[in-house]
Every structure is written in C-alpha cells, then in structure tokens.
Computed example of a mutant assay.
Amino acid sequence: MTRPPGGVPPRVLLVEDYEDTRVALVVELEAAGFDVDDAADIAGADRALAGNDYDCVVFDRLLPDGDSITYVHRRRKEGWATPVLFLTQLDSVTDRVAGFDHGGDDYVVKPCDMAVVTARVQAMCRRAGRARPSVLRHADLEVDCARRETRRDGVLLTLSHKEFAVLEHLIARAGTTVTRAELIEHCWDTSTDPMSNVVDKVVKRLRQKLLEPELIHTVRGVGFRLEAER
C-alpha cells in the first residue's frame, strides 16, 4: 500500500499469541506500508484499543485468555466499529458463520499465505478510510480534513501544516489522551527525536489560535487530550 505524500499510514493492531506467526505478520504488514502494533492476548488488545485508534484489527480466534469473537461481540454492542479480520485454524462453516455473526468483517483460515492476509487488510483499511467523515467536529470546533480548514465557533483559523496535522489527530481522538510519542509518530518524520519539545511548541501555538474556552488539555507526564470540559 502506497503511503500518500505527507499522509499517515494505516494503523493495524495484530493480536496473535503464536510468536513466530505474529512476528512474520508484523514484518509483512510493515513492508506493505502499515503502522503495526501487536498483542499476544485479549488483555493486551484491550489496552491497545483503549489508547489508540486503528484502521483494522486482526484477531487470532483462540487466545490464552479466551475466544476473541466473544470480546469483539461485546465491543460491537458498545458501538465499536473498527473493521476486524479473524485469522484462525477454526475452519468449519459453523466457525466462519460465528465469526461474522459476532462482528467480524472478514475471516481467513490458517495456514495461509501472508500476502493474502495483507491484501485483505489493505481492502478493509480502504473501506474504513472511505467511511471516515471528512469533517470532524467537537464542541464548537470544526476540522475539515478534505479542505484542510479549521473553524472555531464558525470563525476560520489560519494554521500551519504541522498545527493542522496535530489538531486533526487530536480531534479524531477527542476525549482520549494522546501521548507525545504518538503525535510525533503520526505528525512528524522518523528522524524526529521523541524526547524533543516540538510537540509542546506546536500545542502552545494551537492553544493561542483556538482561544478560549480551552480545548487542548495537558495530561501531566503523558500527553494531551482534546475535550470541551475537563
């Protein structure tokens, strides 16, 4: 998958307890242009999902702490909409139907070609990208991702490219704490020192331009959260 100039690569969470398979898939997906996080069980997946947004999640079915379809089914009932691919050795018709009935969007049976999994993930991320709204809103803040325009209470703001990128990421994760490392990963190139204060400088300028009441709040020792009220 080709990364658009200046764009953010699709982010994938891979949940697989068998280390050899997990490592091989991470290598394959990263080579295809994905930003990949991985976990070995449902608890690890839950922690990753609590702090990050993903374009697609790949779940092995039978994990050390349970069947992932039960977890996905519960999350679906809570309104979680991220595309899910089940990757498993359970290959009966009943197993496949259960995967779809419990909220899966695709189902691949092991053993399988890594290229097949990558192609399925690419297709799911494309569908997820098309489904994402082009205009993001929170309180009186509006970010038009297509036009690259920002308005606060209807007033057009002038933002630099980096300020817009940071704000776009924060509003997409509104109400969730976003770490400085995550902002560097998504809004800067790989040569940026994660210990530098570039993020704080951009956030300071954003606060000045967004005016009152304050929308971007500092979570001490962690990062930032965009929300109308603390």
Rank of each mutant, 00 (worst) to 15 (best):
S196Q: 01
L63N: 01
A40V: 11
G51F: 13
S160W: 00
W188R: 02
K209C: 03
D189S: 05
D144C: 06
A119I: 13
G223T: 04
A228N: 04
R147V: 10
A40L: 12
E182P: 14
I42L: 15
L215C: 06
Y71N: 06
A165F: 09
R173G: 14
D55P: 01
R126N: 14
D65L: 08
T70N: 09
K162W: 12
W188D: 00
R75T: 05
R11H: 09
R130S: 11
M114I: 12
R76C: 00
G6R: 08
S68I: 00
G66D: 10
E16Y: 01
G33M: 00
T82K: 13
S196Y: 04
H102E: 11
L206W: 06
D17V: 07
P83Q: 08
W188C: 11
L157N: 04
V135K: 00
T179A: 00
R96L: 07
D20H: 11
V155Q: 14
R147C: 03
L49C: 15
E78M: 09
E185C: 08
R11P: 04
V58G: 11
L170V: 00
V222N: 08
L156A: 09
L85W: 05
E19L: 09
R130T: 06
F34E: 07
A40D: 10
E142N: 00
D105K: 13
A81Y: 09
D38S: 10
T190L: 14
P10V: 05
E28G: 15
M195Y: 09
F86G: 03
D91C: 02
G129N: 03
G104M: 08
F164P: 01
E28W: 10
D106K: 06
L159V: 00
V219W: 15
D53V: 10
Y54S: 01
P9Y: 11
